Amino acid sequence: MKRTLLALAVLIFVSSCAHTPEWRLSWEENFDSPQIDTSVWSTISRGTAAWRDTQSSDARCYDWRDGKLVLRGIVNDDRTVDTAAYLTGGLWTKGKKAFHRGRIEIRARLQAARGAWPALWLMPYEEERYHWPEGGEIDIMERLNFDSVVYQTVHSHYTYTLGIQDPVSSSTAPIRPDDFNVYGVDMWPDSIVFHVNGVRNYAYPRIETDKPGQFPFDIPQYLIVDMQLRGPWVGPVDPEDLPVEMEIDWIRYYEWK
């Protein structure tokens, strides 16, 4: 009898652990048309933040090749129009499309260069309500220079302002440096789970704490896809390495039933 009950308990445990959510494809962007879908995307305007101080709508920073979006970082050869030494292309869904409680996967290839800083990331859709870092930031992928790894990170008041790293807020994952890789994140009410090429990298959980702002991520987010150059983290640019490209094959957003 005890063996029967034990076997039944093991069966129930295995069955529950084997359960996986049923993902349903909700939206995808394949970049098949050689133009930006302006109902979803806008080019990113230049700003003062380190990640944004070379963003430009210059047509040379955007291209389509073999059904893929190409975002470039280039030397600015006409500083009478824009005083930035370098120009980069980037798109975001800010004010147009939000993502919440689902899985995002992006297939991309990243060229390497000194000072290259391509990124795929999420920010709060209602930015007027959630100022950085109180509303959080989810970095699906950042690559620096010639690295053979990418960084996957969350930022918040808890991790950035208070500087608390329990739980740890960032991890690296290996990539195929010269090939396409699939970068992904799952947004759950109780955790943010990162993966690369279908392999889980790490998870950032919601925890019980008396410190404020530990898990602000369970809110609608907008997506940012951008080529970046230079900055305090990535370092200076070598203009001899430019132009440098990030190719985006497709983006898919899944929701669970």
Score class of each variant (00 low, 15 high):
1 M>V: 14
11 L>S: 12
18 A>T: 11
19 H>W: 15
20 T>A: 15
22 E>M: 07
23 W>L: 15
25 L>I: 09
25 L>Y: 11
28 E>V: 07
33 S>K: 14
34 P>G: 01
42 S>E: 15
45 S>R: 13
54 T>L: 05
54 T>A: 08
55 Q>H: 13
55 Q>M: 14
64 W>N: 02
70 V>Y: 08
76 N>E: 06
102 G>I: 08
104 I>R: 00
109 R>C: 07
110 L>T: 06
110 L>D: 02
114 R>T: 15
117 W>A: 08
123 M>G: 02
130 Y>W: 15
135 G>V: 08
135 G>R: 02
137 E>Y: 07
139 D>E: 07
156 S>F: 03
157 H>C: 09
163 G>P: 05
169 S>E: 14
171 S>Y: 09
173 A>T: 12
174 P>H: 02
175 I>C: 04
177 P>G: 10
178 D>C: 09
178 D>M: 11
182 V>T: 15
190 D>M: 02
197 N>A: 09
204 Y>H: 04
204 Y>R: 03
206 R>F: 07
210 D>C: 05
213 G>M: 01
214 Q>I: 05
220 P>L: 05
227 M>S: 08
229 L>A: 07
232 P>I: 07
238 D>W: 13
240 E>V: 11
242 L>K: 05
246 M>S: 09
253 Y>K: 03
255 E>V: 10
256 W>M: 10
256 W>N: 05
